[in-house]
Write a protein that binds this DNA or RNA. Sequence first.
RNA 1: GUGCCCGUAGCUCAGCUGGAUAGAGUAUUUGACUACGAAUCAAAGGGUCGCAGGUUCGAAUCCUGCCGGGCACGCCA
Length: 547
Amino acid sequence: MKNNILEKAISNALTTIGLEQEVEIAFEKPNNPEHGDVSTNIALQLASALKNSPRKIAENIVDNLHFDQSIIDKIEIAGPGFINFKFNNNYFTNQLDEILLENDSYGKQTIGKGIKVNVEYVSANPTGLLHLGHGRNAAIGDTIANIYTWLGYDVTREYYFNNAGNQMNNLVNSIYVRYMNELGDTTLEFPEDGYHGDYVIDIAKELIKDYGDELKEGNFQDRIAIKKFGETWCFDKIKKTLSKMNIEQDVFYNEDSLYKDGKINDVINDLKEVNLVYEKDGATWLKLSEMGLDDDRVIVKSSGEPTYRLPDIAYHKEKFKRGFDKIIDVFGADHIATIPDVMAAVKHLGYNVDNIKVVIHQFVTLTKDGQQVKMSKRTGKSYTLDDLLDEVGDEVVRFFLIMRGNTTHLEFDLSLATENSDKNPVFYLKYAHARICSILENIENSEIILKEKPNFDLLNSEDEINLTKSILEFPKSISLAAEKYEPQIIVEFLREFASNFSSFYHNCRIKGEEPELLKTRLHLANIAKTVLKNGLTIIGISAPNKM
RNA sequence: GUGCCCGUAGCUCAGCUGGAUAGAGUAUUUGACUACGAAUCAAAGGGUCGCAGGUUCGAAUCCUGCCGGGCACGCCA
């Protein structure tokens, strides 16, 4: 919690009491409300430098504070030497007038104006269906994109895919065996690292509808047809699933284009120029050991094909060349090991990797009735993201997938998610919004009243002030979520916010109060409605008028 | 074996750059509808913050070691 007025006043006080060097004055919001609204530990920090006891220093500071104290209710020295400041109610309620001017756009900011951000997420190859892990990736990525958009950044939502190479060959091999099985030939062995999922059988069946047994030889041409068919089939499903989740990305970037445009060769040449590659055993190696990493890695195989690292490097270079100032990659924990390699190379090509943020999220486990549901690939029976969306709906899915910190393993409780009850945390937020709408409906001429100027000085009860403080924290929670790349921060804020509103609702009536108070509280409720609506919009959830 | 993530209330999880009495939801128990939506509110109980050291005025937070769970360690992506 920052406060420029206090920072300046304390800084001046420190000079007065004889501190020579510049120090950073830290403020925080105490957990205990009795400790005021902001607190600083500066006296404790300076104890050894000033060779005095923290409490003495604190007293000295407080005695030498000179600023407009009309906003202050109380300044206290507490505990080992904290200085606690309590603002008076008007300090908070006065700020509501400004929010009134912002109206529906409260929370929107302009700090990102003119800055181009690329957020890459999902990026699953068209070799199968999306599972819950992809769902988490999608929800996190899309929400981060929303947050940055809300802050005024110029955001591009991107999906990167590869429809060539080994993974696709595996798919083709897998489909081919299933296809032959369907045609009655069961002599073929299923590939060792093939795709075991049931969907491959579905693809094979549909392949027969289109081609009959024309592809049974499995020659080069047949394989091309199978590949095309399988890729299209998977991509259609993936896009449908994402659209069901209300996700629409701007750019689908095909890895293949990097080859066609010569970008891959360019990168090899670039790397050669800075002397970071060498030939060994017929392959091209990247000298990662010279970039501070442990082992060198192959970037072009002896077969002449690049490994994934090379296009990844080229792709990131390309993002910079496309003019992005900030690059955000959302990856699952399984990609964690490959990131340092790519970053090191991009850095040595002369790009500022500080502008790349890789957001890593952990995996998802699904539980039902307290039991873990296995999502094994081996058995082929996996519970897909699409199944989940059909079962619980897009909003609950999105909410559950971002309600934990990115680095935590997420347990998706299917029983809880499907329950339309007060236990389901999504409803708590939507309910608060619907309730405000209901108030507005219940009060005669509420629309007209809201056009009149309120008198926020009338707000002074604990619940009114808490709600006001909570309203004022909304923009900060958005920028904090952006800074930390943590959608969960918005979720936590909204829960707390809805809770503050509900307490206010129970203790402060609106309907039937004196006209001035009614008007003022109605305005407060209306601002609360905007906060809920905007907060829910950011996390991809609707704010209904009725439930 | 090596690297990364996690371990906090019965369960699911917060805890910001170290701060004061470690929080929320849920579950349990108990109150509150003749008043704007009870999908709500209010209250109570519930903890060796995985274990052991260290750093310091002060550690859930930082460092080291160990234990337990997950994920990676390829000329696969």
